[in-house]
Amino acid sequence: MFFQFGDFLSPVLTGGITAAAVTATVSSDSSVLLAMLLGMLLGMAALVVLSLLLMPLFGAFEVMVPAMLSGMAAGILTGMLAASGVAGSAGVIGAGLIVGVMVFWFVQWRNKALQGRAL
């Protein structure tokens, strides 16, 4: 149960923190393309920091892989949202958290499919 909580926390926290970093750095008059790129880089930075903090508590790849996906996907999406001005700060952060939840479900689903005897 504790580790399952970590599996959920890792992508959601990474998505949320990435989105918060995007709202702090991207304004609605920024280039959408550059904002997406910046968002992805911020997502990568967030996942490195969060992985270092969460891995001793919750595992290695089980923390890092969802955080990678969530950081990059949330960074690209929230960069686009923030630069295009279609969502305010709360909406952008909410989108980052939703990306994290979706990544959690996706990784759980893929893990169930791939786990087990492969040869």
């Binding site: 790849f61 089980e62 892989v65 893990n111 005897r117 492969a118 040869l119």
Partner: peptide
């Protein structure tokens, strides 16, 4: 000669 592969986490940890 590989006899057996067991995926533990995705197809990464095995």
């Amino acid at each position: 000669r590989v006899d057996e592969i067991q995926n533990i986490y995705l197809d990464i940890v095995k």
